[in-house]
Design a protein around this nucleic acid. Structure first.
Length: 691
DNA sequence: ATAGGGTTAG
């Protein structure tokens, strides 16, 4: 093992080597022989052995890979290597075929264009090929003087360029293909990359480590770890040494699939094997743990980095990952601690650091702090960019301040920052939240006409908007429209639509959607269940709701407070107050803490069941446990007291509520006015509330 | 020329 280095750049596979492997495979040469061939190619055969345990839980072809890799070290004859390779190839081909057909659908809606740009890029690539064929130095120099902007290349442009390149003879060097695939992968069109790779493979363009790493990365993002691992077979076949990037990418893939243990195992296996992790490895692990909600593990890794040799000291990227994760979990003070720590260590924050912090404080409604941060960053010559502005737009929208959001949007345009799909989608959501569906639709249509590509997010936001307003038919129409445009509705889209059906009482349709989702093998998360459960309760389907809950309890999903709140609320709706109470008081034994919403639901239930003193007890308990009661809690309990003829206590609570800066909502007002007209409450109450 | 960081929906 020590004779090989993972960081060694792989040699270009020698055609005779590929021949040798292929013939060896066909003739069932002993694996000792193949191993020998790999070694002549400076490829470490142990590498494949070391990766084999990660392939062991995979379906048939991978099982074969596993045994094949084992026999590599035991120098036994494997069952049928040829079978394995053809299987793996076939699977890749099928995946790619599926990918390319969906890609064609996407193209159908036109757009793209940009021929002049295409030409200049083509010239650029030609120059690169010239360079790699050692033709002319002069054209290389001119390329360096006038570097074309690859960043302007759209997906469609990239694909046509790729196809043109495939028709050139002699075939261009693999570098050009890598550039295009890498670029399209950056644009997140992973399926398109896979289908390009299949075409190139068919024409026998020999990949290199870059190519295969790009492909692994694409499969990872498509949640197809199995295919990612099968690419290892390609490395083997072409005699290419997998490198540290390959491993980093595989680790990332495991995290995307939520397989933390596999990721950790791969990491320790590589360390054990003397393969040195680099800063990207640590970054990937830290990001992975943050994604899993384990900030503590992420910070521990940061500390571990500090103790490592100087080549992987913590950098701005790892600090940003953790700061952002802490902000997302509203642990903003902790984020600020890390922020000062990085500065004191001489690591300069960048636009991403500031954007994450701004997002964090905005979520807590700390507008002053956000403004301070904006000023601070600008004073350091770090300027807010598209993402920073989009967050500001989004936050304003979530606060219901769409007019202000619009003016931020205009400001950014003035500064030459073009709002994109995300910015406009946030704005659209802002209108949806206010129920201004006509305005939301206007933004949507404007996006379509201005060339901002509407995506699955945009559709889901709009569908959700219509569902909230109970305009289910419009939602259904959009749902079909998005599929027609080749945009794939995901669990969130389905859940929004399901909620819409529930809201208009079409519980059967909601259930049908749910079954469809299950049948597609989609990953159903707790929130999807919560929506259906809520719908069943609200449509008086107690028995079915309880059955669904039972099903849910049997599954290995981590049931969160949302699902229990829904259950408790549902039981209250059905008048089963005792049962609701049981669940409520059992929460802590399940390791769950009721939040303000849970308390409000239980308080409401207790009031409806006439147990007002218990309701009041819960309100006080909230304060002890520092779960702040919100305006909803106060309005709920005040209504409870009024309905139970406890006007004196109600008045006391109204005072308390006003002191805390909350006000009576429309329902409470209506109730008070009703009681006033019957001379049942003190008129002073009205003057108090009307302020 | 490839891999890691910040923005939108239930």
């Amino acid at each position: 093992m020590q004779n090989y280095h993972f960081g060694t750049p792989s040699l270009k596979p020698d055609p005779t080597f590929i021949h040798a492997v292929n013939n060896g495979v066909k003739s069932q040469a002993t694996w000792q022989t193949l191993r020998g061939i790999l070694v002549t190619q400076c490829v470490n055969p142990d590498f494949f052995l070391f990766l084999s345990p990660f392939c062991s839980s995979l379906p048939l072809p991978y099982v074969l890979l596993y045994s094949l890799l084992h026999s590599l070290s035991l120098s036994l004859s494997p069952p049928s290597p040829l079978f394995f390779f053809s299987q793996a190839l076939e699977m890749m081909r099928r995946a790619a075929a599926a990918a390319s057909s969906s890609y064609c659908n996407n193209r159908g809606r036109g757009g793209g264009g940009g021929m002049p740009r295409l030409h200049s890029i083509l010239v650029f690539f030609n120059n690169i090929f010239v360079y790699s064929f050692h033709y002319s130095q002069a054209s290389v120099a001119s390329t360096i003087r006038n570097p074309p902007k690859l960043t302007n290349l759209g997906v469609g442009d990239g694909v046509s360029l790729f196809n043109e390149m495939l028709q050139m003879r002699p075939l261009p060097c693999v570098v050009g293909f890598n550039q295009i695939m890498g670029h399209i992968a950056k644009l997140k069109h992973y399926q398109a990359v896979i289908s390009l790779y299949t075409q190139m493979d068919r024409l026998r363009v020999v990949p290199d480590a870059y190519t295969l790493n790009i492909i692994i990365n694409c499969f990872c993002h498509l949640n197809q770890m199995g295919f990612s691992l099968s690419v290892l077979g390609k490395f083997f076949k072409f005699g290419i040494q997998p490198n540290i990037t390959t491993l980093n990418t595989l680790i990332k893939g495991f995290f995307i699939e939520g397989k933390v243990s596999q990721a950790a195992l791969l990491f320790s296996a590589m360390v054990e094997r003397g393969c040195k992790p680099n800063d990207v490895t640590f970054g990937t692990l830290i990001k992975g743990y943050c994604m899993m909600g384990n900030n503590t593990a992420a910070i521990q890794l940061l500390r571990k980095m500090e103790q490592q040799s100087r080549d992987c000291k913590p950098n701005v990227v790892v600090y940003n990952i953790i700061i952002d994760s802490l902000c997302k979990d509203t642990l903003v003070p902790d984020a600020f601690k890390l922020f000062s720590e990085m500065i004191s260590r001489g690591i300069a924050p960048d636009v991403i650091t500031y954007t994450s912090l701004i997002h964090g404080v905005c979520k807590l409604g700390q507008w002053k702090e956000a403004t301070r941060l904006l000023n601070e960053m600008v004073s350091k010559d770090i300027f807010p960019n598209l993402v920073t502005f989009s967050i500001l737009v989004d936050t304003l929208c979530k606060e219901g301040m769409v007019v202000e959001a619009q003016s931020v949007l205009e400001l950014m345009i003035q500064r030459g920052i073009k709002p994109d799909t995300v910015t406009y989608s946030s704005l659209m959501d802002g209108y949806c939240l206010r129920g201004e569906m006509e305005k939301a639709k206007e933004v949507f249509d404007m996006m379509n006409s201005k060339g901002s590509v509407v995506n699955a997010y945009s559709y889901t936001i709009l569908i959700n908007g219509y569902c909230r307003c109970k305009r289910i038919n419009e939602a259904i129409r959009l749902f079909h429209e998005m599929s027609d445009r080749g945009l794939v509705p995901n669990t969130v889209t389905y859940t929004a639509l399901m909620d819409g059906f529930c809201k208009v009482g079409r519980i059967l349709d909601a259930q049908r959607l749910f079954s469809k989702l299950q049948a597609c093998g989609q990953v159903l998360d707790v929130q999807t269940y919560a929506v259906l459960l809520d719908g069943l309760f609200k449509n008086q389907q107690l028995a079915m709701a309880m059955e669904l809950f039972g099903e849910l309890e049997c599954m290995k999903l981590d049931l969160n407070i949302v699902i229990y709140s829904t259950l408790i609320e549902g039981l209250c709706i059905a008048g089963k107050f005792e049962s609701a109470k049981d669940h409520f008081y059992c929460l802590s034994s399940k390791g769950l803490e009721p939040d303000a919403r849970t308390y409000t639901i239980m308080i409401k239930g207790l009031c409806e069941g006439g147990l007002i003193s218990e309701a009041e007890k819960l309100l006080r308990e909230m304060e002890q446990k520092s779960v702040a009661p919100d305006d909803c809690t106060y309005n709920t309990i005040i209504r409870g007291f009024l309905n139970n003829d406890e006007t004196v206590k109600a008045v006391g609570l109204v005072h308390e509520m006003m002191d805390r800066g909350f006000s009576a909502d429309a329902w409470t007002m209506e109730l008070i006015i009703g009681l006033l007209s019957k001379d049942k409450v003190d008129p002073a109450l009205l003057s108090l509330i009307e302020k």
